[in-house]
Amino acid sequence: MTPTDDTPASPSPAGAGGAFEPAATRPVPPPAGNPSLEHTVERLVHDLLRDRRSERRWRVFFRLAWFGLFVAVAYAIFVESRGPAAPAGPHTALVEVSGAIAADAEASADTIVSGLRAAFEDKGAQAVVLRINSPGGSPVQAGIVHDEIRRLKALHGKPVYAVVEEVCASGAYYIAAAADEIFVDKASLVGSIGVLMDGFGFTGAMDKLGIERRLLTAGENKGMLDPFSPQNERHVAHAQALIDQIHQQFIAVVRQGRGDRLKDTPELFSGLFWNGEQAIELGLADRTGSLDYVAREIVKAEEIIDYTQRGNLAERLARRFGAGVGESLAIALRHLAPALR
């Protein structure tokens, strides 16, 4: 009797289809309930949900932030459109002249004159104080303000005082000369009664670089003071005569405003400036004193109400961040403003 062989027979090299199929190439189904795969999927789903929640929170945050900005801008427009609060009784009216005096600056004639008119027209204002901290600027803008101060003084019969902080020079002093009295600090800088016209000449640099200037004009003087052309003595003389005439206009305004208080020295109208003490000695200022001192001791009305007209928020942003952003915001706020006034 032959013993039974329990060893399995070797697989046949030919399968059912007659082709050889190595074991290593057969697809192996993933084992059921693989803990590693389940953990990976769970982690991916958790991360996805967490990212979605984070995105929602940031969206809510930015919407609230934009809404808060909108409310702040709207409130600023509303507050600015209301103007100064009405005082309970007699008060000192304040108008600021701060920074460069120019048509596109905060210290423009339009801005200053608007504040002056509001101050003079208020029956509770006992006097108008110009608080000045400016190096000067446009003689045209300064002249408009000066003439309006004199007109309003005559119309309303109220005194005007100028209080100088750090600087009252050139065009700023042109404005101050319309005041009845000028108060300074001992260290204030006052004066610079003169006119300048400045520019650059590039002809030497152009010669070195081999650059030729080609300028066509209709009118023999149209290219006057062109910085890329050689100086023309006739043009220079014409420009000098212009600024000399403006200088004489400035001197006449100062003499009219200060009168016999001026000590007429050769350097008084030379463009020099002096400290507060020297300005008092020369008659360019009257005495030392601050805004509070003038309101309390001179006007006898300690309550000070600011009538300075300041540009709205959109205009300030336009000056700070550029025309593109500022103009867009200004257009949007212009549509909003009528509903808030």
Rank of each mutant, 00 (worst) to 15 (best):
A205Q: 04
N275Q: 11
A172V: 06
V160L: 10
S328W: 12
R50S: 05
D306G: 09
E80Y: 03
R234D: 09
G201V: 03
D180A: 08
F183L: 06
D185Q: 12
S54I: 06
N232W: 09
R150C: 07
V129A: 05
H335M: 03
P30D: 02
Y161V: 14
E148V: 04
S36R: 03
T265I: 11
K186N: 10
H247G: 08
G83W: 13
A279K: 14
L64D: 02
L189P: 00
A14F: 15
E106M: 07
P90T: 03
E121T: 15
E148A: 01
A14Y: 06
E42M: 15
S188L: 04
T7Y: 11
Q309D: 01
K300C: 09
A65L: 15
E21K: 02
I331F: 11
A105W: 00
V45H: 09
H146I: 05
A154Q: 11
C168F: 12
A332G: 15
S10H: 11
R316I: 03
G83N: 09
R150S: 15
G322C: 12
E21L: 02
D180K: 05
A86E: 14
V254P: 07
T111W: 14
P230Y: 13
L44W: 13
L329W: 05
P135N: 02
Q249A: 04
D292C: 06
P338T: 04
K263V: 00
A32F: 00
Q256D: 15
P230C: 08
M1L: 09
L340M: 10
A127F: 04
G219T: 02
A218V: 05
G204T: 03
V41N: 05
R287F: 06
A72T: 10
A85P: 10
A295Q: 13
A109D: 09
A93Q: 07
G283T: 10
A179R: 10
A237G: 08
P8R: 15
E96Y: 01
R52A: 14
A119D: 02
T111D: 15
I144S: 13
D180T: 03
V140M: 09
P11T: 00
L196M: 10
A301F: 13
D226L: 10
G219D: 04
D147E: 10
V325Q: 13
H156A: 00
A162S: 14
N34H: 00
I246D: 06
F273S: 14
I175C: 12
I304L: 07
V236Y: 01
D260I: 02
K153H: 05
A177Y: 14
T40R: 12
F78C: 08
S10V: 12
F120K: 07
A103N: 05
P27E: 02
R320L: 15
I298N: 06
R287C: 01
P139M: 04
